[in-house]
Design a protein around this nucleic acid. Structure first.
Length: 840
RNA sequence: GCCGGGGUGGCGAAACUGGUAGACGCACAGGACUUAAAAUCCUGUUUUCCGCAAGGAGAGUGUCGGUUCGAUUCCGAUCCCCGGCACCA
């Protein structure tokens, strides 16, 4: 007869709710731990089995740490702004907040069903005005800050020194230019048929449906994350994150060391600045390339070339990023008619424009060294430009040589790099450039400023207004939150702005400070905004005076463990780190980095080993699993499948396996009449059993500490295999076992704990201790190898005297057979492990 | 192409800082209980060869090579799979 998990799980979930078992106080006398799950986007389709994997892992760890006396903060909430709800609203006219609430209700029901020990009194929801008021508030802090390169930190804009001889207008412009949030013309994916702007990830979908998508410039809010590039990179060093994720962040930030140099334009007093990581190859620069958007293009283009240059620039503008990628490596470009002077060779070299040079990286211009750069090589071949070898080691008649080597053909009357290895040549060249005032060493980052506005309804409104004179004004803290208005239609306006622009009562407003007419910003913030700081709000969710109190922040931060999917490895984590650093600079936070330790759980695949998807029909619904086998079985199985970080396929049979295990656990302690099993007796533990229980405690404890849940479960299975059919089971061993099991399968554990005679929850029971000496074994199996092959095994006492052991080994029948008539060359004894004999 | 992670039975996996490869679970096979089935329990299960058996011998952690008394573990080369990035000068 199977144990009635339905009843038991319901009973204990209600108990935990009624007793607020998992509500956590800001008890500064206790040692804290902050264990966080990445909060989900509550989609309409509900939870899939991938979600509970990470949630279960942190829940087990949380319960374990609680039993070890830690004060654990373990909250959950909702990242609820987002496109699907808005799209649904466009189709149905139902307000996104209604669908969002419904979806949250579904998610919450499913998550509660899993028996996760969250402190629900701290639940946050990014779409709740009480929450997004503070998202807007943080935006204002960012907006009203500037980055002081001298102190290397953000400071309030009020502390920005403004040159005093400026007009009001100039002052405004000066300040605007320094803010960490600024307006810029940025290209968006415009779809004329839909009359809307598409997110990058949507482009594919609509293009494949036959819609056109073009690039169109639009004024957008940007966040100056690039000011933090260096710190975002450096501070990665102190984080306990998976090496792969650290690497991805580093690549994304993309620091590269090199030099900047000025190339004079022939027949002009202007020059073009380039960034290069290979200053040593400057003698091989045979032409230059500007990005099509480079501001100097208009000035330098000769009249004869004007038409083709303009054509090329227009073409480039129309190309979406996707097109550019689709072009692969087919290089295009046109000659501007102008020449620059290579500062090293003093020769005139042609200036081209080509879209393989990107305006947003470096200076938007390059010196092209076709001999030693693959892209330049290809371009030079295509347009018949000269290729010169300046680093030996390759064969430039066949391909570009990008490796190191010694410099050749690299001398003028002031400097010679010839014979120097690449590393030294770079240095020498940079020194020469610096001395001549032609350039300097420099560091560049791939990281670009963050495009922070979206043309959407369902997002946080910006707390900004436009005055009649065209200037931007930030609203006051007391004006927050700026609420999303009710709307009948969620269709974007035909200008590409969000539906907010179609609501005149909302858009047209007055400046609350002066009463003057104003227009609201109709863009909204991206979904990232709410998730950039939610982990802080959990700490102080009901505070209506501050986004977080300083004392509470000091106690709870940083997050000791953060678990979530690797899909957020770059953007979410980078953006959150950036906001965190701004708030840190401004004195609101005590920690430089929010997430001290990060773990990415692996993906759970379908039973067929493929990624779960509706179209494949291999999606497993946790509701079904739970109703058939119970939550405890589901939790246990997800942890038993394999290491948390691995990708692994679902298996229904596997769930049955752990379900059987739970039934065995039940039958070990409870008899057919649902009473405590008569074999359980209050008796002292014998030697072997004592050792066994200490070994079990040790294994489970250490595995929990290392989050090796699968092997901890194995050990518990071994325990049950041993004890299930014993005639006499010491009660204290059963109690210890139940405590060990409880983080994994809390419902059945609570029920068994009660059966064993306890009246309250075991959630705060003391975690069992093990004694190293009691876990130690007295005999071990000694292995004997002859020439590397196992020839015999026999039990011996631990720490046996080596002489006696040798004798024992050489007397062994099978060992004798293999060494008889041969000479022993060597005999290695590895204490308490094996004896290895080498014979000839 | 570049960066990162990984290749162990029929399957999910385990193996401490180099020391018995395959714990635990699944699946499968045989048996017990049962009128029967389910459930449960017991036994076996990397593979090849010798043996009725107890047992013994050989091969084996993607592939090839190296270091070592001994390598899943360390080193070098190579193939394959997964994830990320993608003209970043």
């Amino acid at each position: 007869m199977a144990y009635s998990f339905l009843e038991i799980e319901k009973k204990w979930q209600k108990y935990w709710d009624d007793h607020q078992t998992f509500k956590v106080a800001d008890d500064t006398a206790k040692q804290k731990l902050y264990i966080l799950d990445m909060f989900p986007y509550p989609s309409g389709s509900g939870l899939h089995v991938g979600h509970p994997e990470g949630y279960t892992a942190t829940d087990i760890y949380t319960r374990f740490k609680r039993m070890n006396g830690f004060n654990v903060l373990h909250p959950m909430g909702w990242d609820a702004f987002g496109l699907p709800a808005e799209r649904y609203a466009m189709q149905t006219g139902i307000h996104p907040s209604i669908t969002t609430q419904q979806n949250i209700a579904t998610f919450k029901r499913q998550i509660k069903m899993l028996g996760l020990s969250y402190d629900w009194s701290r639940e946050v929801n990014t779409t709740d005005p009480k929450y997004y008021k503070w998202t807007q508030w943080i935006f204002l802090k960012i907006y009203n800050s500037w980055y002081d390169p001298k102190l290397d930190k953000a400071r309030p804009i009020s502390e920005l020194l403004i040159p005093h001889d400026l007009s009001e207008k100039e002052k405004y412009d000066y300040v605007t230019k320094h803010r960490l949030s600024y307006l810029a013309e940025m290209p968006v994916n415009w779809c004329p048929e839909l009359g809307t702007v598409l997110a990058n990830e949507e482009v594919d979908e609509w293009v494949s449906k036959g819609y056109t998508v073009e690039r169109r410039a639009m004024r957008q809010w940007m966040l100056r994350i690039t000011a933090y590039a260096e710190r975002l990179e450096n501070d990665l060093a102190d984080l306990n994150w998976p090496p792969g994720i650290l690497e991805m962040q580093r690549n994304w930030i993309g620091r590269s060391e090199g030099a900047e140099a000025d190339f004079a334009i022939a027949g002009s007093n202007k020059s073009i600045r380039v960034f290069t990581t290979r200053a040593d190859t400057m003698f091989g620069a045979t032409y230059m390339v500007l990005a099509p958007e480079h501001p100097l293009v208009d000035e330098i283009t000769t009249p004869e070339q004007k038409k083709i240059v303009d054509d090329y620039r227009n073409q480039a503008k129309m190309k979406s990023e996707l097109d550019r990628i689709a072009m692969e490596k087919n290089k295009t470009g046109v000659f501007t008619g102008a020449y620059a002077v290579n500062p090293a060779t003093k020769k005139n070299i042609p200036i081209w424009i080509a879209d393989y040079v990107i305006i947003t990286y470096g200076t938007g211009a390059i010196m092209a060294v076709p001999g030693h750069d693959e892209r330049d090589y290809e371009f030079a071949k295509q347009f018949n430009l000269p290729i010169v070898e300046v680093v030996s080691g390759g064969d430039i008649s066949k391909e570009a040589y990008t490796g190191d080597g010694s410099a050749v053909n690299s001398a003028n009357d002031e400097i010679s790099l010839n014979g120097l290895v690449t590393e030294d040549a770079k240095l020498r060249m940079a020194e020469w450039l610096e001395k001549k005032g032609l350039g300097k060493r420099s560091i560049n980052y791939k990281l670009r400023d963050w495009l922070f506005s979206r043309q959407r309804y369902w997002g946080e409104p910006f707390p900004l207004i436009y005055l009649e004179d065209g200037t931007v004004k930030d609203l006051r803290e007391s004006d927050l939150p700026i609420l999303l208005p009710e709307s009948k239609s969620y269709k974007p306006s035909d200008t590409g702005e969000s539906a907010l622009a179609t609501i005149p009562e909302w858009v047209n407003t007055t400046d609350p400070a002066t009463g003057k007419p104003a227009r609201r910003e109709t863009h909204t913030m991206p979904q990232w905004a709410g998730s950039c700081w939610y982990y802080l709000r959990y700490i102080d969710p009901d505070n209506d005076k501050e986004f977080i109190s300083k004392e509470k922040e000091k106690y709870w931060m940083p997050i000791d463990l953060y678990v979530g999917g690797a899909e957020h490895a770059v953007l979410h984590l980078l953006y959150a780190r950036f906001w965190h650093k701004v708030l840190y600079d401004l004195g609101y936070l005590s920690t430089k980095e929010p997430f001290r330790r990060l773990i990415n759980q692996g993906t759970i695949l379908g039973e067929d080993g493929q990624k779960m998807s509706k179209s494949r029909g291999n999606v497993v619904n946790p509701d079904d699993v739970v109703s058939e086998y119970g939550t405890d079985a589901m939790r246990l199985f997800e942890m038993f499948m394999g290491p948390l970080v691995d990708t692994k396929p679902w298996s229904t049979h596997g769930v049955e396996g752990v379900y059987r295990f739970l039934n065995r656990v039940w039958r070990m302690i409870v008899d057919e009449n649902n009473a405590i099993h008569p074999t359980i007796k209050d008796i002292p533990i014998s030697g072997d059993d004592e050792r066994f229980i200490h070994q079990t405690i040790k294994k489970v404890t250490l595995d929990l500490e290392g989050m090796n849940f699968n092997t901890a479960i194995s050990q518990m299975m071994i325990f049950v295999n041993e004890f299930l059919n014993r005639d006499v089971k010491p009660r204290c061993m059963m109690e210890t076992f139940v405590l060990l099991l409880s983080p994994f399968a809390p419902h059945i554990a609570e029920e068994l704990w009660q059966k064993l005679g306890h009246s309250s929850s075991l959630a705060y029971e003391k975690w069992p201790r093990y004694d190293e000496s009691k876990a130690a074994v007295s005999t071990i199996e000694m292995v004997v190898q002859v020439n590397g092959k196992v020839r015999s095994k026999f039990p011996v006492a631990v720490d046996m005297d080596e002489e006696i052991l040798r004798k024992l080994v050489l007397d062994d029948e099978n060992v004798k057979r293999h060494i008889d008539g041969k000479q022993i060359v060597k005999l290695v004894v590895v204490k308490n492990k094996l004896v290895s004999i080498v014979v000839k």
